[in-house]
Design a protein around this nucleic acid. Structure first.
Lengths: 141, 141
DNA sequence: TTCCATATTTATAATCATTACAATTATATA
DNA sequence: TATATAATTGTAATGATTATAAATATGGAA
């Protein structure tokens, strides 16, 4: 069930994206599922609600969202791309056990600098890999 | 021409990897070409010298090197994997114009910590994207 | 040295994520 | 309502990587 369809619609229109049924549903999904899903995960989750949905539409839509700055792609696992609705600069933690990608709330000294060693920065990407808090609790060695 | 084949051989043997002709050449290539080449780039560069070389062998060898800690894979572009012979923790800069991946000599506050927000860190990955120093000089806007 | 077991390399096919393309469908406006 | 345009779809193509099985090389044992 879509709760805040109006705000989803506004978000699209503010970015100059026509708010179609497919796009509304994909953005809505990303808004409420902040675990950085893959294109395939989005497709699988929405195909019940949007039965005519195609993988191609998911990929197309995600590419449009990316170009318009509505999301950032994450290259962390080396296989599938994960999508992050949070476009503010932040870091991630990838758990090798449960495979979750967790947002981190840490400060990076270079976040605001705009340059490093003479190179002009436009994007920041930082992630750690290891065992997450939950998996540590569950007694993984 | 291979200059320090003996040290290359020692490196492999120290890691418990049998020093074959293919492996010696791939490691030698990585040692002298520190621009983080892809599997394809390595294959193309070596196929003259090692005419029977196959792509499969390059991939196999790189996977062995990765498992034994001789290199780290870099997931930066989202398409091909780049390989970094420098396994010490360091950051990278990816130039969107010339596509080069440049090593950075900056300190990260979390490099030695071992944990962040309760999660146990085993790997650190940091990279910036933008326009590199050289491309800025050449007058890219 | 010769034989044999094992490891390495190769060629080919398969896989997986993603993109290209063309046909179909929906939408908006005259 | 007709028509132009945009969005969506299904299918095929692509590109990087892996799986598989055959061929080759290697290192001892006899």
């Amino acid at each position: 069930m879509i709760i805040n369809m109006e705000s989803i619609k506004n978000t699209l229109q503010e970015k100059g994206i026509k708010p179609t049924y497919v796009r509304l549903n994909i953005l809505d999904y990303l808004e409420r599922n902040r675990f950085h899903p893959t294109a395939e995960a989005i497709f699988k989750s929405l195909e019940k609600k949007v039965p005519t949905l195609s993988r191609t539409s998911v990929y197309n839509t995600l590419n449009i969202f990316k170009e318009k700055g509505l999301l950032n792609p994450l290259f962390i696992t080396g296989s599938e791309v994960h999508f992050d609705r949070n476009t503010a600069p932040h870091h991630h933690f990838f758990c090798k056990k449960c495979k979750k990608i967790i947002d981190l709330d840490i400060k990076c000294a270079y976040f605001k600098e705009g340059e490093v060693e003479g190179h002009k920065i436009t994007e920041l990407h930082g992630y750690f890999k290891g065992i997450c808090k939950d998996c540590l609790k569950k007694g993984s060695k």
